[in-house]
Simulated scan of single mutants.
Amino acid sequence: MKKAYITIVLIITSITAFAQYEYDVSETYPYGKANPNAPDQIKDFDTLIGECNCKSTSRKQDGTWNSTIDMIWRWKYIMNGMGVQDETLKVDGGHSGSIRQFIADSSKWYVHYYSSKSPSLTLSTWTGNKQANGNIVLYRKQKAPNGMDGFFRLTFYDITKIGYKWIGEWVDFSEKIVYPTWKIECKK
């Protein structure tokens, strides 16, 4: 009788634990799943979830472009499907990532960025949304090297089931002046 009781308690505990984390990374879902209790926008990054082989290039100080660097860009649902995390693994040893949360009260994504090459006490934060054209656009206030006020704008575009493109650009507040500084192309 006591053994049967312990077995029942263990089964109930296992079921409860599974239900509590059923949208987390698992053998069946190696990149997790979107939690149906999350805001609908949790699926904005759905097509990016998984792993891509990418080519990354950034602009040099003199305005020319650096050589392309190979990288892996890996995306997954975190916090039991309530958030999205990505990480990049670059062949040059520079790695980075972001934690993404959609906050319904402001109807915006908040993206917190971190990097192995420039550790920080506080994480940089971008905010933005998925646009009607399917692009995901995020902004962070940033001055240009000449002191002009503006944003650093991040855009995911050409998003399909087989890949996507990403660009980082400095833009003035009117977005009439656009200066690309970083480009990435990814294929699944």
Results as ranks from 00 to 15, higher is better:
V111F: 04
R100Q: 11
I136L: 09
L121K: 15
T125L: 08
Y113A: 12
I99Q: 14
Y113G: 08
M79F: 00
Q85R: 01
M79Y: 02
A104K: 12
S106K: 11
I103H: 05
S98G: 08
Y114I: 12
I99R: 09
K90P: 01
T125W: 04
V91R: 05
V91F: 01
E87F: 06
A104I: 09
K76I: 04
F102C: 03
D92Q: 03
Y77V: 01
L138H: 07
Y77G: 01
S118N: 10
T122S: 13
M82T: 03
S120V: 10
Y77A: 01
H95L: 03
I99D: 14
M82E: 01
Q101W: 13
V91H: 02
W126A: 13
Q101S: 11
H95R: 05
N135L: 04
S106L: 08
D92F: 04
N80R: 00
K90A: 13
P119M: 07
T88P: 01
S96P: 05
S124F: 15
M79L: 03
K117F: 12
F102S: 04
S96C: 13
G83I: 00
T125Y: 09
G94K: 04
W126R: 12
V137M: 02
V111E: 03
Y114G: 11
S98N: 14
G83H: 01
K108Q: 13
F102M: 08
V84C: 00
Q131W: 05
H112F: 14
I78D: 02
G94H: 03
L123G: 10
K141T: 11
S96E: 11
H112Y: 12
Y77K: 01
D105Q: 14
T122E: 08
S124V: 14
T127K: 07
L138E: 06
K117G: 14
W109E: 05
Q131K: 13
G128R: 08
A132F: 11
S120W: 06
S98W: 02
G81L: 02
G83R: 02
N135I: 05
S106G: 07
L89V: 06
Q85A: 06
G128I: 05
K90Q: 07
H112R: 11
A104H: 09
S98H: 03
Y114V: 13
M79N: 02
Y113F: 15
